[in-house]
Write a protein that binds this DNA or RNA. Structure first.
Length: 430
RNA sequence: UCCGGAGUAGCUCAACGGCAGAGCGGGUGACUGUUAAUCACUAGGUUGGGAGUUCGAAUCUCUCCUCCGGAGCCA
């Protein structure tokens, strides 16, 4: 059986094909009507007249509603008047199911209403384009690691305690115990890297922070590579290669979708290696030179990240943050222990931090010392400390926020559109 | 948690102390090239909840609720 899809319709010019889909829109004009058909791969205009199709099909115009499901058989022709350049001269229209009054109309809607209708909103052109770009981003990430001989290692979602002391975790009953939903697979990825060399985990991550901004979700997807025998510079090289690859793949395979989103493609085409690498000290100087009130030792807030990111066309990597504001597992610079061998990658156009990474502390004693400084009990991390007891090596890794990357590449104003069913402080349905 | 903003028809909004309205969507009808088609007619309301001021409140005051944006935190 041959299946025909709208995205490939130009290969079937002058053929009679059968398309299966949904009514995206209807325009009736007496003895001719136009059925805008959507099949999940694209949208095409079907022209229905009594000259070309049977009467029962023609009369469906009085019955069909927006989003009713139909199958249309007809001849593919090229026509300038049709959006997309091709249209279908219908020979037969078969009704599958009549849709009730569709909540999403052709006029504008508010974001809250559309999010309530998220399960239906995904059918719209714009959301369709975002989901396909998201797919390509995820696929390109997996291909990127696969081509570099990384092994995928899935890490647990139920975890005993926090990876980083500060973040608020979702707590859940675990038989007679408590468990927390993961905020990072990193510690497990480190264990896997000692077994397999180069690994990555890719899964959902949960943060119970009461954040209400366009950059935050309570549930988001994160990809975390971890590499044995990597130092900070190699870590940054990898992050830069990965982002360049993702952007190139999207530009090559999702041009139509970027155009649907009215994304300024020149901004993406400008992403070129090498990305600027700025020492934390220089980032502070850059901010101070622009009149921002920051002192050495401060962490960067969203406005700071925006200023640093906007200074360059490509993403910027800021490295050597003060260890005091970074996580316990990040290795301190042997040359000057007040710095951590850490890096954040800031996306252009104000999209902020998309990657956070570091070389890890591989010395047992220094790691225990850092845990104690953070008020952590090393006894709770005995298995993690085993990685430093048995064949410890220099290693590094980073975490990439998938939705922030999607939001940046798509040019979205809010991260909640970057995931099919977003979870935020105030949204658990649909 | 803090700061700001908003809740009026199914949806998007107007009316801002004096008869609650429009567009879209729904219904009925017209139209053989429409592009969020157009045109005519039509149905559709506990103005977020509660209290107060007033001859009179969607409008002013208080309070509660919900949502949105931002900060902090982070991917």
């Amino acid at each position: 059986m041959h299946e025909y899809f709208i995205q490939n319709i130009s290969y079937h010019k002058d053929e009679v094909v059968k398309l299966k889909g949904w009514v995206y829109n209807l325009r009736k004009s007496g003895k001719i009507w136009f059925l805008i058909l959507r099949d999940g791969t694209g949208i095409i205009q079907c022209v229905v007249t009594k000259n070309d199709c049977d009467e029962a099909s023609f009369d469906l115009k009085d019955v069909l509603t927006q989003e009713s499901s139909v199958m249309v058989t007809g001849k593919v022709i090229a026509d300038e008047r049709a959006d997309g350049g091709y249209e279908l001269i219908a020979h037969k229209v078969e009704l599958v199911s009549i849709a009730g009054e569709y909540p999403i109309t052709k006029k504008e809607h508010g974001i809250e209403f559309l999010m309530d209708q998220r399960h239906l909103w995904l059918r719209s052109k714009r959301q369709h384009a975002i989901m396909r770009i998201r797919h390509t981003i995820i696929k390109s990430i997996r291909t990127f690691f696969d081509q570099r001989d990384f092994t995928l290692v899935d890490t647990p979602i139920f975890q005993k305690g926090a990876t980083e002391g500060t973040a608020t975790l979702f707590e859940t009953d675990y038989f007679d115990d408590k468990a927390y939903l993961t905020q990072s697979g990193q510690l497990y990825a480190e264990a896997a890297a000692m077994a397999l060399g180069k690994v990555y985990c890719f899964g959902p991550t949960f943060r119970a922070e009461k954040s209400k901004t366009r950059r935050h979700l309570t549930e988001f997807w994160m990809v975390e590579p971890e590499m044995a025998y990597y130092d900070l510079d190699m870590d940054m090289d990898l992050a830069e290669d990965m982002i360049s690859y993702i952007v190139a793949e999207v530009l090559m395979n999702r041009r139509l979708e970027l155009e649907t989103l009215e994304r300024d493609i020149t901004k993406l085409e400008a992403i070129q290696k090498p990305f600027p690498r700025i020492h934390y000290d220089d980032a502070i100087k850059l901010l101070q030179a622009r009149g921002v009130d920051v002192q050495w030792g401060d962490d960067f807030g969203a406005p700071h990240e925006t200023i640093i990111g906007e200074a360059h066309e490509s993403p910027v990597m800021v490295h050597h943050y003060p260890s005091a504001i970074k996580a316990f597992y990040m290795k301190r610079d042997p040359a000057d222990s007040k710095y951590a061998l850490a890096v954040d990658m800031l996306a252009p156009e104000g999209y902020g931090e998309i990657i956070g990474g570091s070389q890890r502390e591989d010395d047992y004693d220094l790691l225990v010392e850092r845990m104690r400084e953070e008020g952590m009990d090393p006894a709770n991390y005995d298995w993690y400390l085993d990685l430093r007891r048995y064949g410890s090596v220099p290693h590094a890794g980073f975490g990439l926020g998938v939705e922030r990357t999607v939001a940046w590449i798509c040019g979205l104003s809010h991260i909640r559109e970057a995931v099919p069913f977003p979870r935020t402080m105030s949204r658990l349905t649909p």
